[in-house]
Amino acid sequence: MTMEREQLVTMFSVEKSFHVINKPIKSHSKRRIIANGLNKLSDDEKMSDDIFALTMNIFDRFILKYSQLINDHHCQLIALSCYSLAKKLRTNVLINNENEQTSWIFLNENYSDEEIFDTEQLIAETLDWDLSTVVPHDYIQLIFQAVLPNEVDQAKIRLHVHILLSLGICELNTLTILPSILCCACIKAALKGLSIVNIHQIDELLLKLIHCKKSELIQTQHMIEKLFQSCLQEIAPSPTRRCLAPIDTSNKTNTSPRVK
């Protein structure tokens, strides 16, 4: 077995160990607003998209496990702390020191360092330090290598896959779909949208690679396509914008204690 295949096998087993089965998924009522705000924040800070995906995964798992009531202020604080944890886990910290002082403004509230660090610790303890997990973006390159050898095709659809993934993660609780299936569904939707290759051939290869039910993959793909259609209607005048529910934070940037 090649190293890539072994990595895939390990990643499947990691994602399954985090997957919630036989338990109702509890989403926070403000999840969509929170996700859109975080997506914009990570975009503004030029973080790679996997950091946003990990942030939302930590957020969704925390909400599921945390039994106390969470008001809006606390919910945003939790979201920011999840983002801070994801950055600590996935950025090249020593190289990205300059990111430390970037915007911590989120919606219309300010939070102190202490509040964020205390909440980081609450999250880490609640999730028993199981914070580093697999996100859909981790699969992109491995799946490309296996099913889409043409590098020109890869480059063409990569951006589309990233946008569809961000959209999916903004709209759908990350605990409801396995990262590998969400990644494949977005790759399929992007290939179909760009009419790049024969979808039926890709279907077989993908199913063989990730061992999921065909119906599940198709259903997820349809969900992503539907989300994409409805968002195209919402944001028709500026189709390139990533953040789908615009949140204006620009007039607040000078009031944060974090901005030096």
Binding site: S84, L85, K88, L89, V93, E100, D113, I116, F117, E120, Q121, A124, W129, D130, L131, S132
Partner: peptide
């Protein structure tokens, strides 16, 4: 200055 240091966090989680 940064709460739980990222090095400790990585070490634990990985």
């Amino acid at each position: 200055d940064d709460g739980v240091p990222s090095s400790a966090l990585r070490e634990i989680c990985l």
